[in-house]
Write a protein that binds this DNA or RNA. Structure first.
Length: 420
DNA sequence: TCTGGGGTCCTAGGACCC
DNA sequence: TCTGGGGTCCTAGGACCC
């Protein structure tokens, strides 16, 4: 049997840990530049605020109802996520973290009859130890465990844990479950199934495997099997990321080349640091930038340059220089660039690098320098040392007006909180 | 005026091989 | 007039996830 643990309204719950006065009030967390709603408290959901809604569209509602807004604070969410995960990891086996707020784990080391009580204790431990409310679903497949966790979240009577153990329970749960809410069924699949007269998970599960395959291909067939109780989806985490991206939307569009280059250099350095953390190197690099797709009144432009690196590398300085050279080839004067990003691709382990016979770089020396720079950043904080290309201006291009303090990770903030 | 960021997997089609 | 069959590899784009 699988258990799925899902943190309720995770980002909002993180903010509330340090602001208990916001319990019972409508709260939302916003995306970058305070653009869209990405997490909502139950009270905010009850006001009809939808996931992904741009803030400017609900401004009046927010003011009228006193909705509390937060800019996203990922170092806080990441830290609290680590604490939740470590509690679960402590006394379970086959633990697989699926996202910042979700994990699967096996409960087979507990007798079947005691599994629900065991998970209820886990819910209480996490609430008391970290302050985050969670819901747990138990079932024989991951997709069914997700269904169960949604019931656990929806009905307080479950005390945070719901199990789908018998076939009667499965049929009952799926008959009241909307097909579009099933894990793996997105917008397109939902539209197709609706057109075929299917509106609940049970209706889909009771069609033939051929129907599922023809309608939704391989992923759809897997979901169909999972809804029937078979465990066929493997989500074991990849040992290494296969691609690493850093991208940002700017508060207002940028046209100046130097300012854009500064952003590209920073994206590059950020990607490269992650690459080194997982002890890997990239063989390809992609730089892109484009105009706002929402401004249909403006001429759209999308630039992207793919660079094949002669020798696979994770060196910030080297990656920055290739990225900037590529960007300069593609940059067009006068274009209103609203978003830009860097992607590292074809990632392989450090040991697998094939040296170039005609390489002129002293890679050993570069590596030692990079190690020293990383060490300084670790000791003294991010961006303690940066390359000149990362800071050619003092301009701010992002907007975060509602950011909470770094309660758990920044010493200055921690001191301030204790002083208050 | 104002609309996020970071991933994975699958498939179809083209290039290429014998 | 008639022009095969089978395989691999790569890539771009779509769909999905949180």
């Amino acid at each position: 049997m699988f258990a799925l643990c899902d943190c309720n309204n995770f980002f909002v719950s993180c903010e509330r840990v340090f602001r208990p006065d916001l319990e019972g009030r409508p709260v939302v967390v916003l995306s970058g530049n305070d653009g869209c709603v990405v997490s909502r408290s139950n009270e905010a959901k009850a006001l009809g605020i939808k996931m992904g809604t741009p803030l400017y569209l609900i401004k009046q509602l927010v003011e009228r109802e006193g909705v509390v807004c937060f800019s996203s604070n990922f170092s806080l969410y990441g830290d609290l996520s680590d604490r939740v995960m470590s509690i679960i990891r402590q006394h379970t086996s086959r633990f697989e973290q699926y996202s910042i707020d979700e994990c699967f784990f096996s409960v087979d080391h507990v007798p079947a009859k005691g599994q629900k009580a065991y998970c209820e204790q886990l819910v209480r431990d996490i609430r008391r130890g970290v302050g985050i409310p969670v819901s747990i679903g138990i079932a024989s497949s991951k997709t069914l465990a997700k269904v169960a966790s949604k019931y656990a979240k929806k009905y307080p009577g479950y005390h945070g844990v719901c199990e789908i153990r018998t076939d009667e329970q499965r049929v009952k749960a799926l008959s009241a479950f909307e097909i579009g809410d099933v894990w793996g069924i997105g917008r397109r699949a939902k539209a197709k199934l609706t057109a075929a007269g299917i509106s609940t998970a049970l209706q889909f599960a009771e069609r033939s495997s051929v129907f599922a395959r023809n309608m939704l291909n391989k992923p759809g067939l897997l979901t169909w099997q999972e809804l029937r109780g078979q465990d066929v989806i493997d989500i074991t985490e990849l040992p290494m990321k296969q691609s690493i991206t850093t991208s940002r939307t700017f508060a207002t569009a940028i046209t100046e080349q130097p300012l854009l280059e500064e952003q590209i250099a920073n994206f590059c350095a950020h990607c490269a640091r992650q690459l080194r953390t997982q002890k890997s190197v990239a063989q390809q690099l992609l730089v892109y930038a484009h105009t706002s797709p929402f401004r249909t009144d403006q001429v759209q432009h999308y630039l992207s340059e793919l660079v094949m690196l002669p020798v696979a590398t994770s060196n910030s300085q080297e990656l920055i220089s290739y990225a900037l050279a590529a960007f300069r080839r593609a940059y067009r004067q006068g274009v209103l660039y609203k978003k830009a990003g860097v992607v590292l691709l074809k990632i392989i382990p450090e040991e697998a690098v094939v040296p170039d016979l005609f390489d002129v770089k002293d890679r050993d020396r570069d590596k030692r320098l990079q190690r020293v720079l990383d060490h300084i950043d670790d000791r003294h904080g991010k961006r303690s040392v940066i390359f000149g290309s990362q800071m050619t201006s003092e301009k701010t291009v992002y907007k975060t007006e509602h950011k909470s303090p770094l309660y758990t990770t920044d010493l200055r903030d921690i001191i301030t909180i204790h002083a208050n």
